[in-house]
């Protein structure tokens, strides 16, 4: 494609996104923070793997010492107590510094959890997509039996909670032990619980993704497939080369929503023992008895993931935009 698509061809279609738009002034600031966040994560992950792979997660040192933050927090709370009732706002500030110090001290462990969160989300959304496309095609173009089967699958999955689905796989079917026996699991591949969580998220998100793709497929003009068939392409080839490339572009906003949902719902893997971000926070909370503070810290992590993903997907949508489509 040698033609540069006019920018803004898709800008009018922001619609209701899963997160929504922040006021513009804040967006620039957040873009900077987003780069910083991902930069730190990538350096941290590489460092822990290349430089100090043998050190236990909890023994790893953060790149930035937490001491100064604690010092400020201590000083502020002394001032706050001295001022009595007037000191309350300063007390809050002291809390903010304490929380930041707690976060910094645990950054290596949180980064490790964040890595699993990212793996869970990316692997599951992509595997889910691989299932969702044929599922959606079956819904729209299939015969009565395939159509009904695909419908039953999506409705059953979408009609029950994700956490219950994870429980079916983990407690009900006890997928842990057999998965643990698979070659590579726990070695080059992630641990058994992570793999089971990926299976669950893949199944779950395939149903939701197929809904977005299905409605995008029905949005493609029927004349497109007719024209494809008229030059001698078979039905599947016509769908593959003519209908899907257009439908998948239509589906990007919905697909972004699903991606963002999955980032957030990946936290439910904690309940089947996966040491991702939320579970790391829970462990840190149990060690320090500072649940609220550490949960506030990871809320910021998730927000950073969600907002950067939304921005990246908007960029991707603009990059893949074609004049006249959308």
């Amino acid at each position: 494609m040698s033609k540069v698509p006019e920018s803004g061809t898709s800008a009018g279609r922001a619609g209701t996104s899963a997160v929504g738009e922040l006021p513009t002034a804040r967006q620039a600031l957040l873009a900077g923070l987003g780069v910083l966040f991902w930069g730190w994560l990538i350096v941290r992950w590489s460092y822990d793997r290349l430089v100090a792979p043998s050190v236990n997660v909890t023994d790893r040192e953060p790149f930035v010492p937490a001491g100064p933050l604690e010092g400020v927090a201590d000083a502020l709370s002394t001032v706050a107590t001295d001022l009595g009732a007037l000191g309350t706002p300063i007390g809050w500030l002291a809390w903010a510094f304490e929380t930041a110090a707690l976060g910094v001290r645990n950054l290596p462990a949180l980064a490790e959890g964040a890595l699993i969160t990212v793996q869970l989300t990316v692997v599951s959304i992509l595997c889910g997509l691989v299932i969702a496309v044929p599922l959606a095609v079956a819904r729209v173009y299939g015969g009565p039996v395939t159509r009904w089967t695909a419908l039953a699958y999506t409705e059953l999955i979408r009609g029950t909670p994700l956490l219950a689905q994870l429980f079916v796989l983990w407690f009900g079917l006890s997928l842990g032990p057999p998965v643990r026996g698979l070659p590579g699991v726990g070695g080059p591949l992630p641990s058994a619980a992570v793999v089971v969580a990926m299976i669950g998220f893949t199944i779950n998100s395939s149903a939701y993704q197929s809904e977005y793709i299905r409605s995008a497929l029905t949005g493609v003009d029927a004349g497109q497939l007719t024209a494809a068939r008229a030059i001698g392409l078979g039905k599947l080839a016509g769908i593959r080369h003519v209908v899907l490339p257009q439908a998948l572009r239509f589906a990007i906003p919905g697909w972004t929503n699903e991606f963002i949902y999955l980032i957030k719902y990946s936290s439910l893997a904690a309940f089947i023992t996966v040491p991702e971000l939320f579970r790391r926070a829970r462990d840190i909370g149990a060690d320090t008895f500072r649940f609220t503070d550490i949960y506030a810290v990871i809320a910021v992590f998730y927000l950073a993931f969600v907002l950067t993903t939304a921005a990246a997907m908007r960029h991707f949508e603009d990059r893949t935009a074609i004049p006249g489509l959308n």
Partner: peptide, 21 residues
């Protein structure tokens, strides 16, 4: 499909593949 290869068709509303140049 072979028949359609040998018989071309031109449509009233063009039906050009919208995603391709």
């Amino acid at each position: 499909d072979e028949l359609r290869r040998q018989v071309g068709m031109v449509f009233q509303d063009f039906n050009l593949f919208a995603h391709r140049t």
